[in-house]
Amino acid sequence: MRNLFGPMFFFGFIGLAVFMISHGAPLGWLPALLVTAIVLAYAGERRWPYQANWNKSQKDSARDYTHAAVNETFNVLGVAAIPLLAMWLPDSGLWPNDWPLGFQLLLVVPLADLGITLVHYASHRWPLLWRLHAVHHSVTRMYGLNGLMKHPLHQMLEALGGTLPLLLLGMPVEVAALLAFAITIQLLLQHSNVDMRTGWLRHVFAWAPVHRLHHLKYGTAGDVNFALFFSFWDRLLGTALDSQRYTVTDNDLGIGNRPDYPVAYLAQLIEPFRREHPAYPPAPVPPALHEVLIKDS
């Protein structure tokens, strides 16, 4: 099951969502399907944990639930607003409305992935964007719900980067809803605490074994593996790190030069707008990781 968990979770839930909507099910069924996915993600983390202590709350569970609830609510509102946006946007006539819904989703996922990946990449290089994105990197354990732990403003910027070109092309609301659902499924897999074995699929999908390295707290060591869906974007950016020889622990996570980063939800919303931040030296790279980075870079 460690070998099958990623593919079954990804293709199973997204395929079921496409099947349901293609056969007339209302979009209101997608939140219920998402709740089912979250429950199964939790069950998998407890059955096959990568780090058993990551399944234990560090007084962060209520905060993470709040982040998830707020950000998913904004996602739903964003999808619901698409018909209103369509009234203001010109009809380009370019959207392939005659394609089956599944093929339309196959079209939008890599395009949205590119836009989101570029915003993510920029967020590690532009200080103003990093202030917002740092909320996501403040976690000291990784499990599925961490993928939904983002500052709402940064989530909005990523969403615009991934969907604005598609909306200008005339993406319909059903496709947008399926895209939002697919992104959430991918975020659950990308931050999962399941000890999944992805084999050659790690060269295609940016699931947890690939993405955990992005959350390393050691300066620029974590400036790798930015992609949301597909690993090949990082190969094109020159930011791919494909190491299977280092086990990430909670000591490796967080923001190395901000060990005091706020934990509470409201404090995290305010933190990017504080003018002064305490100065701490960067966290030193452990010798075992340093050796891996040299060999795999």
Rank of each mutant, 00 (worst) to 15 (best):
M87A: 12
V70C: 10
F74P: 04
R47V: 11
A80P: 00
V39M: 12
A43F: 10
P31I: 01
Q58P: 03
A68R: 00
G44E: 00
V70R: 05
W29T: 12
G44C: 02
M87S: 07
G78Q: 07
T66N: 03
N55E: 06
Y42Q: 08
Q58S: 12
G28D: 10
H67D: 13
R46H: 15
L77I: 14
P31E: 04
K59M: 09
Y42L: 09
K56N: 06
G28Q: 12
G28M: 09
L33V: 06
A25C: 11
D91P: 00
P83V: 00
L40C: 08
D91W: 03
Y65H: 10
P90T: 06
I82P: 01
W95V: 04
L33Y: 06
A81H: 04
M87L: 12
M87R: 12
V76H: 00
L94H: 11
Y50S: 00
K59Q: 15
G78F: 10
P49I: 07
G44Y: 02
R47A: 15
A52F: 00
L33C: 08
A80W: 13
F74D: 02
G93T: 07
Q51I: 05
W95A: 02
E45P: 07
D60E: 12
R46Y: 13
H67F: 15
G28K: 02
E45K: 07
W88G: 11
Q51Y: 01
Y50K: 09
L85A: 05
A81N: 02
E72T: 12
N53Q: 14
R63A: 15
L30C: 08
R47W: 15
G44N: 00
L94A: 15
D64R: 03
H67V: 08
L40Q: 05
D60C: 11
W29G: 00
R47D: 03
N71H: 04
L94Y: 11
G78T: 10
A32Q: 10
G78E: 01
M87W: 03
G28L: 10
I38E: 02
Q58W: 04
A32C: 09
K59T: 07
P31H: 02
Q51A: 09
V76C: 04
T66G: 06
A52S: 13
R63G: 14
A80I: 11
L89K: 09
V39D: 01
A25D: 10
A81I: 03
D64N: 14
L84M: 06
